[in-house]
């Protein structure tokens, strides 16, 4: 029997949320816990998940994740993005079934989260320059199930379009009050929220007069190695988007548009910050166990 002891609420709209979730599993009398929590209060709940069947010492009904639809993810080789030419694999990928190794993955429910990790404007003694924004949304799967207590990491350049990184030699100023990194955990509904400043556009060497549209890098783990996602969030109406080979690397137009956040009155804070909504959708679960992959991807 596997039980998840989870706190149902991590309210990171509060100035300093308390991280309160952990995992524990009882197997054959062994109590195994992941993470640690403080002050769960009255919001704890116990959620059961179906235990995998054991037959002859092997788990036989693990549920894998549904493969992505053709064209909704980038190909490795996308020549307009010049860096892909010498780094994309040239041989066909080898299709394999998802196994226990891919259906499990690292758990970060005990990561420390506080205002300094999700409010990028509060990491230094002064305030960063630029337009304050609130970026929030949900991490869900393709069946709209919330991805709970998963780690979300972001990084970005400053308002002038400069990253705090020695490789970035763009002649725009660094901001002593802006590092450009943050992390948080989703709550029981899969919600996350960051406060930051709107990143600037910046030039890059991909082609003549190339400029990246303003974007924020997102990294999400989800429940398994299989669901790992690194992506970028763009801003609605950015005139640079149609010219960006990284944005345009995905064939499916509707899939590309999922990378563009939406301006949102609900999360816009009067006199303070514009709100943008950005949802991240991870792979959904298969409905039958151990389904082998039927076809390889080129």
């Amino acid at each position: 029997m596997v039980q998840r002891d989870v706190c149902e609420e991590i309210d990171n709209t509060l100035p300093a949320p308390t991280l309160v979730c952990w995992w524990s599993t009882t197997i054959g009398g062994h109590q195994v816990s992941w993470g640690a929590g403080t002050a769960c209060g009255s919001t704890c709940a116990i959620v059961s998940i179906a235990p995998a069947k054991m037959e002859n010492g092997f788990m036989t009904n693990l549920m894998g994740f549904r493969r992505f639809r053709p064209g909704t993810q980038p190909e490795y080789l996308h020549p307009p993005y010049v860096s892909s030419v010498k780094r994309a694999p040239t041989k066909a990928l080898v299709a394999i079934p998802q196994t226990l190794s891919e259906i499990t993955g690292p758990m970060f429910g005990s990561e420390r989260v506080d205002v300094k990790t999700f409010d990028l404007t509060k990491q230094h003694s002064g305030e960063p320059l630029g337009e304050r924004i609130v970026v929030s949304g949900r991490v869900i799967d393709e069946d709209e199930k919330p991805v709970r207590h998963t780690l979300v990491e972001i990084w970005q350049c400053n308002a002038a379009g400069r990253y705090l990184h020695n490789v970035d030699q763009h002649n725009a100023p660094l901001d002593p009050n802006f590092t450009g990194c943050g992390h948080t955990l989703t709550d029981a509904e899969g919600r996350y929220r960051f406060v930051t400043i709107r990143p600037g556009a910046y030039p890059w060497a991909n082609h003549y007069n190339a400029w990246r549209p303003a974007h924020i890098h997102f990294s999400v783990f989800g429940p398994a190695f299989a669901t790992r996602l690194v992506t970028q969030m763009y801003f609605p109406g950015d005139p640079l988007i149609p010219f960006d080979p990284i944005f345009n690397c995905t064939a499916d137009e509707a899939a590309r548009q999922r990378l563009v956040s939406a301006f949102d009155w609900e999360t816009t804070r009067p006199e303070q910050a514009l709100g943008f909504q950005f949802n991240l959708v991870l792979a959904g679960r298969e409905e039958t166990p151990w389904e082998p992959l039927r076809a390889g991807r080129k």
Partner: peptide, 23 residues
């Protein structure tokens, strides 16, 4: 309602800014 997965994008050259905490 079925939702569709978010496409991947490159980590780019500056991932260390956001990723070094878990290195």
């Amino acid at each position: 309602m079925s939702f569709r997965a978010t496409p991947s994008q490159t980590v780019g050259p500056y991932f260390v800014i956001g990723c070094n905490r878990l290195e």
